[in-house]
Simulated assay, not measured.
Amino acid sequence: MEKLPSRHLSRRGLIGAIGTLAFAAVVRPGFAADFSISFAELYGKFGVLGLEFSDKVKRLAGKDVSMKGFMAPPLKAEAQFFVLTEVPMSLCPFCSSDTDWPDNIVVVYLLEKQTFVQPRQTIEVRGMLEYDSWTDPDTGFVSLLRIRQAEYSAV
Rank of each mutant, 00 (worst) to 15 (best):
A77G: 00
S36N: 06
L21F: 14
I15Y: 12
L49R: 14
C92M: 05
L14Y: 10
V87T: 15
L14D: 01
V87D: 04
K56F: 00
K68V: 06
K45G: 07
G16L: 14
F82S: 12
G50L: 12
K76S: 07
A79N: 08
V57H: 03
K58C: 11
S36H: 12
A22D: 04
S38L: 00
F70R: 07
F70P: 09
L84N: 01
A24N: 12
G30P: 13
A33D: 03
K58G: 05
E86D: 12
A79F: 08
R28A: 14
I18V: 15
D64V: 11
V87R: 15
L49S: 14
L84Q: 07
K45S: 15
L75V: 10
D55W: 05
Q80R: 15
I18D: 04
S66Q: 03
S38R: 12
P74H: 09
E78S: 13
R28P: 00
E86P: 00
T20D: 05
S54N: 09
L51E: 14
G30M: 05
L51W: 13
F23I: 09
V65N: 02
V26Y: 13
F39P: 00
V83L: 01
L49F: 08
R59G: 03
R59L: 10
K68R: 14
A79V: 06
V48Q: 10
V83Q: 04
E78Y: 04
P29G: 06
A40Q: 13
I37C: 00
G19K: 02
K68T: 09
E52M: 12
K68S: 14
P74K: 03
P29D: 01
G69Y: 10
K56P: 03
R28C: 02
D64N: 15
R28F: 07
L75T: 06
K56T: 10
